[in-house]
Design a protein around this nucleic acid. Structure first.
Lengths: 197, 197
DNA sequence: TCCGCTTGCTAACCGTCATTAGCGCAGTTT
DNA sequence: AAACTGCGCTAATGACGGTTAGCAAGCGGA
């Protein structure tokens, strides 16, 4: 046999993700997901507990990937400016390179049932806290001039999140170009006014 | 009589907006909207053509308010830096002061049926184009250093949009404080490197 | 060969929901 | 007072959709 794929839970999640991304969780039916993997709706229940479980799996996966990328960026050493640059680049790279995940992860929070919702919110809070930590460290070291670090971290995260909504791989900008430009903007946003003038 | 309110279409739209904002369009039932204005679901049809019409009305209203605010900010004269500041402040003020509208306006685009969807998208495109125009004008005048004006306008708009998701009137920041800070960040993001060094 | 496990299918269940029909009650007009 | 009108109500309609039941085909191992 030439390795008939065989329905894997991961394949179903992939299909669900794409559908959630472009129709929304509530507008996607189990029959839709089934059709996307060549099966009838009810057959999915051999591999998946529920539609809600699919959403939770997709969103947890997304947040774990983001946290991993952020940890890698933050853990590579260097001063606050360099670490911030790497964190912003990682953030943007993920949102440009995994638009569906990012989009669903940001739009469908309200459709998560407890306790999954709180779990995801806690992961998001941790993600923000880490970025803010670097900003505060840079402020204390005198390399950033920031009055409200929380407003700065929210701004930086939100501008990256927005990338998931408009970025197209076949558009005029490459992922790396956007990541670099956004990191630059973040740094300029935080840089202290130069001593002259 | 002490002026029994009397059901107005505007009152229904207000209730629908709130429900759309915190449950989502698809998760909101006409019975929910009815309950919010003290009436059964079917009675709403005396005042409203359909649920979809409610969504369209809410979103068109939102985009018109944004475009009006932007026009006012841009039309008040001044150089590119000042006009940009006023436009960003107006953008943030709206997103902090009308969170429900902004939130629905950004999340429910996919639930708009044609031709309303294209109409809203055209309004959004015009809104972005105007902001980008000021950025390009500033670049041509030498007061902004921007390689990709489109990336800059997207960043600025998206960071403002994010405000609608986290801002709380009883939180630690006032609307004006956030608007001022965000405008500042936008300007610093675009400011050319100073001539020294 | 026979058993049992896996997995897909159809049918059925049980809700939910937008929307329409048609009734009846004011309040107002003629 | 009769007729009209505006508006809310209940009941019904027609779809849709998540999930469960129960059957059957394929297949590997004893």
């Amino acid at each position: 046999m030439i390795s008939e794929p065989g329905l894997e839970a991961a394949e179903i999640r992939r299909a669900a993700l794409r559908l959630f991304a472009d129709r929304g969780y509530r507008a996607t039916t189990m029959a839709d997901v089934g059709a996307a993997v060549g099966v009838r709706g009810p057959s999915l229940y051999r591999h998946v507990r529920s539609k809600q479980d699919l959403l939770v799996a997709v969103m947890v996966e997304t947040m774990e990937a983001l946290l991993d990328a952020q940890r890698a960026a933050a853990g590579a050493g260097g001063g606050p400016v360099l670490r911030l640059r790497r964190m912003v680049e990682a953030h943007v790279r993920y949102h440009a390179g995994h638009r569906d995940q990012a989009f669903v992860g940001n739009r469908e929070i309200g459709n998560l049932e407890q306790p999954a919702r709180d779990r995801i919110l806690a992961m998001r809070a941790a993600y923000e806290r880490t970025l803010r930590g670097v900003i505060e460290e840079g402020r204390d070291a005198g390399v950033f001039a920031v009055e409200h670090p929380r407003l700065a971290s929210y701004s930086i995260l939100d501008m990256g999140i927005g990338v998931a909504a408009w970025f197209r791989p076949d558009g005029p900008h490459s992922v790396e170009q956007v990541a670099y430009t956004y990191a630059d903007q973040a740094i300029r946003m935080l840089a202290p006014a130069p001593p002259d003038r």
